[in-house]
Design a protein around this nucleic acid. Structure first.
Length: 260
DNA sequence: CGTGTTGTTCAGTT
DNA sequence: TAACTGAACAACAC
C-alpha cells in the first residue's frame, strides 16, 4: 500500500494523535522490525519524550521528539494507526507507542522495512542522504535535472528513490499514462515539453492522491483498472497492456503511450 | 505446490 | 560508472 500519499496520511495520524503527547512506553512486540537499534535502546531513548511536528521525505515518516527522532518505513503492507490505549491489540502491531493519552501502532503484516532511531537532526540527514528530492514539492527545474539525465527507461527513473523520493509502482504507471509516455521510453530522450508534462502530471496525481489519503482506484484513473481481467484504457477505450518493466508489474495503454 | 504482491537492497552482469 | 537483472527478505492470498 504505502507510497507517498499513504505516508502523508500516516503523518497526519502522527500529527493528530502524537504531537505534543508524552511517550509513556514503547512496546516492541516484534524486534524484527527494528533496524540498527535494540528494543531496550529504543525504549530508553524515547520514554518521557514528547512528539513534535512530524515530517516526511519520500516514503519515510520522520517522528521527531524533543529528543531523538524515529524514522519509519512501511514497506508494502505497513501502516500507522492511532487510537485509544484500551483498544485490542492487533496481531501485526509490531511496535506500540503508549502515550499519556492514546497510542500509536506501527502495524505491518510483512516486515520488509522497519523503524530506525536518529539521535539528532544530523543523524536524520545521514539516514536520508541517499534520497532524491521529495516528489511532492520538487520544482520543474530540479525534476528535469533528476529525470532527464538518466540513461535508462522512464519508469525505472520514476521509482528510483535516489532520483525522486516517494513514487511507487502504482503512481509511476498512473503518471506515465496521464503524461502519454511509454514506461520504457529512454529518459534522456525526452523533450523539454515532455519533461514539463511529466512534472505537471506528477504534481497533479500526487496532489489528488494526497487529498484522498491514498492512490485512488477511481474508474477514471488507470489505477482503477489494474486488476480487471481485461482492462481497458479509461481514456481511449482500447485494451491495456500488462508486462514487466524495471522488474515490476506494469500497466500501460499502447494507444495512448506509443513506444516512441 | 506453484504464482504474485503498492518496497528496498545486494550481488553479479552488461 | 551507470544501470539492469534476479534473488532475497516475510507473510499471505489465490
Amino acid at each position: 500500500m504505502p507510497e507517498l500519499p499513504d505516508v502523508e496520511s500516516f503523518r497526519h495520524v502522527l500529527d493528530s494523535h502524537g504531537r505534543g503527547r508524552r511517550i509513556e512506553d514503547v512496546e516492541v512486540n516484534d524486534a524484527g522490525v527494528l533496524r540498527g537499534v535494540t528494543a531496550r535502546r529504543l525504549r530508553q531513548a524515547l520514554r518521557g519524550r514528547r512528539f513534535r511536528a512530524p515530517g516526511r521525505h519520500g516514503k519515510w515518516l520522520i517522528a521527531r521528539t524533543d529528543g531523538p527522532a524515529v524514522l519509519m518505513h512501511f514497506g508494502m503492507t505497513g501502516e500507522l494507526v492511532g487510537g485509544p490505549q484500551a483498544e485490542e491489540r492487533h496481531p501485526h502491531d509490531r511496535v506500540v507507542f503508549v502515550l499519556d493519552h492514546g497510542r500509536l501502532c506501527y502495524r505491518d503484516q510483512r516486515k520488509l522495512q522497519g523503524i530506525r532511531l536518529a539521535d539528532d537532526e544530523a543523524a536524520v540527514e545521514r539516514l536520508l542522504a541517499d534520497q532524491g528530492p521529495d516528489a511532492l514539492d520538487v520544482g520543474r527545474q530540479e525534476f528535469a535535472e533528476a529525470i532527464g539525465v538518466r540513461r535508462g527507461g522512464l519508469k525505472s527513473a520514476l521509482i528510483d528513490q535516489s532520483v525522486l523520493a516517494g513514487l511507487g509502482n502504482l503512481l509511476a504507471d498512473e503518471i506515465l499514462w496521464r503524461s502519454r509516455l511509454h514506461p520504457s521510453r529512454p529518459a534522456r530522450e525526452l523533450s523539454d515539453d515532455e519533461l514539463r508534462r511529466l512534472h505537471g502530471e506528477t504534481r497533479r496525481v500526487l496532489r489528488q492522491s494526497v487529498r484522498a489519503g491514498r492512490v485512488p482506484g477511481r474508474p477514471s484513473w488507470l489505477t482503477g483498472h489494474r486488476d480487471d481481467p481485461h482492462p481497458q484504457c479509461p481514456r481511449c477505450g482500447g485494451p491495456l497492456r500488462r508486462g514487466r518493466v524495471a522488474g515490476r508489474s506494469t500497466v500501460w495503454c499502447p494507444q495512448c503511450q506509443p513506444a516512441d
